[in-house]
């Protein structure tokens, strides 16, 4: 048993070595980790309540009291930024999780059962892909309403088609490989075949897709909030902050530019990590699978 663990461990360490071989990936991982820590510690380190309005200190420039100034309602920008990171991360992770679970289940069913199930799932999928993701999310918001939980689920659902399609293609290609035929000819039952031989070989593209999707989901959430159909006030969200900043662009441009910059940094970092994961898991590059 000890030796087996050894090999597993070696696989993981090889993965990390491949992934962190590039400096930029290390930097981006550090940035994301810092943002996560800040988001968790937000209640402790934020100097003010993010929703507390202060009519005596409206639209202030940065000062010792308010490090990044205050907005039009006198709310502390730094505190709102910190709390906003919570929203972004939570929405990103939940949405990707929802999309991955629903999408890969649907994709697997389509590939495994084929026939009518496949046709129904894939046609619906195609239909969903025809509606721009933002428009789809907006339509769902119009029905279910906003809020962190709803937005997360809605963004998840609107990215389901991508997962379903990828998973279907992946399962279909794995099923055709000789080792699956070989396993079947050994007398494996279909359930065992699916879980022992097919699924484990479908996982890496799924993981790659998940890591690459977190960033774009966060971007979508910010977009919806910016339009005013996402996270509703008074919850602090970076998208909402940009939108509020736009109104006072003339007086205090930093109000809109800073949260936008935060979104960009977080998304760029996440996407770079996603690319790192892809390169590390890419069978072409490793030439193993």
């Amino acid at each position: 048993m000890a030796k087996e663990k050894n090999y597993r461990y070696e696989g993981i360490s090889r993965f990390f070595r491949a992934m962190f071989g590039r400096k930029i990936v290390i930097i981006c991982t550090a940035i994301v980790l810092i943002i996560i820590v800040l988001a968790i510690l937000a209640p402790v380190i934020a100097p003010y309540d993010p929703a507390a309005t202060d009519y005596y200190h409206m639209s202030q420039k940065p000062s010792m009291e308010h490090l990044l100034g205050t907005d039009a309602l006198g709310r502390d920008v730094l505190s709102r930024l910190l709390y906003g990171s919570q929203v972004s991360l939570i929405v990103g992770v939940i949405a990707v999780f929802v999309a991955c679970v629903i999408g890969s289940l649907l994709g697997m069913c389509a590939a495994y059962f084929g026939g009518v199930v496949d046709v129904v799932i894939m046609r619906t999928n195609e239909a969903l892909r025809c509606v721009p993701a933002v428009v789809l999310a907006m339509a769902l918001v119009s029905v279910f309403g906003g809020g962190v939980r709803n937005i997360a689920i809605i963004l998840g659902i609107s990215t389901v088609p991508g997962y379903a399609q990828m998973m279907r293609a992946q399962v279909l290609s794995v099923v055709r490989r000789d080792y699956v035929t070989a396993a079947r000819l050994q007398g494996n039952s279909s359930i065992r075949l699916l879980f022992k031989h097919i699924l484990p070989n479908c996982l890496s593209p799924l993981i790659v897709m998940m890591t690459q999707q977190v960033g774009s989901t966060i971007l979508s959430e910010a977009g919806l909030s910016f339009l005013g159909v996402g996270i509703s006030v008074p919850t602090a969200s970076w998208g909402t902050m940009v939108s509020e900043g736009k109104a006072v662009l003339l007086e205090n441009p930093m109000l809109g530019l800073i949260p936008g910059f935060c979104i960009a940094v977080l998304v760029i970092s996440l996407n770079t990590i996603g690319d790192g994961v892809r390169d590390a898991l890419d069978p072409h590059l490793r030439g193993e699978i």
Binding site: Y7, R177, A182, L185, Q186, N188, H197, N201
Partner: peptide, 27 residues
């Protein structure tokens, strides 16, 4: 039993040699 042409695609890349060889014994 059957032996396949391509030794690269006929072995499950995620299984150890032991579980590949011994699978039929278990089944």
């Amino acid at each position: 039993a059957m032996v396949f042409q391509d030794p690269y695609s006929s072995l499950d890349p995620r299984q150890t040699a032991e579980s590949i060889v011994g699978e039929a014994l278990k089944i």
